[in-house]
């Protein structure tokens, strides 16, 4: 027997979600602009000591007990270009985050299902995670200085999403109707957002590292490159997000193979998407190893991190369009 069915789409939710996409892109663009001004024209001031910030040598504890602290690692003091514009930018980013979230919710309501079932929805959700990670890093690690850098790929991805990947909201193909899919896809999206922030922090690290080397040679470094925070902090933030994203990615790949087992009768079949998730996984494992291997820490390890992020992006775009495979649900 064959039945047919009308796609149930809630039109008002669908149009609300489409409006929200534009609103959120405009908001993120405004935030990026403000962050960029802060990075370029703010005054270079010391960051508060915090979770990832060094406790400065010789700092004095308030009250009556004087504590003399000596930190062996002669950390350069963590400084970043700061201005009040950055705070505004952060608030605008938070607004964009709310719009982004609302967009995803309305789209889910429009289609009557969890809202990451195709490339467009996938990209939008990954941007949400990256911005969420930026907000978290700003709060927890005072890493607001990453704002301009994180929002660049976010806006690029959203632009690509709207221009080339957009599809109307609607139901899913049968292979995607499994509760393992939201689990798998959610893990992969969150890990992807983490890798994105880590990759961006990594690139910023490479620039900052280079500025520092040039400064050490006595050259003067101008522009944003010269006003970046110290490489150590960028490296630490970058590493932090890998620690968060790598186990999630591992879990996501496993959840995906459980789903593949249910849907296709094998849990691992070297389909191009599987091959590339494996490649990304191995590269991030190599990154973690490199940090424990003499002579590899620093820029070399960071290049591996950046390479890892490129493979994640390649997997997202190229594999869906270049190869035919079971995963080509673009």
């Amino acid at each position: 027997m064959t039945y047919t069915l009308a796609a149930p789409v809630n039109e008002s939710m669908a149009s609300a979600s489409d409006t929200l996409i534009i609103a959120m892109i405009v908001t993120y663009a405004a935030a990026m602009f403000l962050f960029a001004i802060e990075a370029a024209y703010g005054t270079r001031t010391k960051l508060k000591a915090g979770r990832l910030m060094p406790v400065g040598a010789g700092s004095v504890e308030g009250g009556d007990g004087d504590i003399e602290v000596n930190v062996r690692s002669t950390e350069k003091e963590a400084q970043a270009s700061q201005s009040v514009l950055g705070r505004i930018a952060l608030a605008v980013t938070a607004l964009g985050f709310v719009l982004n979230l609302a967009q995803i919710v309305t789209r889910g309501l429009a289609a009557g299902r969890w809202p990451w079932g195709n490339m467009f929805e996938f990209v939008v959700a990954m941007c949400l995670v990256a911005v969420g990670a930026l907000l978290y890093a700003s709060w927890r690690y005072q890493a607001r200085f990453l704002g301009a850098f994180v929002l660049v790929p976010v806006l690029l991805l959203l632009g690509v999403g709207v221009r080339w990947l957009y599809v109307d909201p609607g139901p899913l193909i049968p292979a995607l109707q499994s509760y393992w899919v939201p689990i798998h896809v959610t893990a992969v999206i969150i890990a992807g957002g983490g890798f994105m922030v880590s990759g961006v922090a990594g690139i910023t690290y490479l620039v900052s590292h280079r500025s520092e080397t040039r400064r050490a040679r006595g050259e003067t470094v101008t522009g944003i490159a010269g006003r970046l925070p110290s490489p150590e902090i960028l490296d630490r933030i970058s590493h932090r997000f890998i620690l968060f994203a790598f186990p999630l990615w591992t879990f996501g790949v496993i959840a995906g193979s459980i789903w593949a087992d249910e849907a296709w009768g094998r849990f691992w079949g070297w389909d191009p998407k599987e091959v590339w998730s494996f490649i990304s996984w191995v590269i991030y494992a190599a990154y973690l190893h490199a940090r424990a291997t003499g002579g590899w820490r620093g820029p070399k390890a960071t290049w591996i991190n950046v390479l890892g992020f490129l493979t994640v992006m390649f997997n997202l775009f190229a594999v869906n369009y270049l190869f035919s495979g079971l995963h080509s649900y673009a």
Binding site: T2, Y3, T4, L5, A6, A7, V9, D168, G170, P171
Partner: peptide
Amino acid sequence: EAVFIEEGSL
């Protein structure tokens, strides 16, 4: 049994 979407872009 196979069920297909009848209307719209899908």
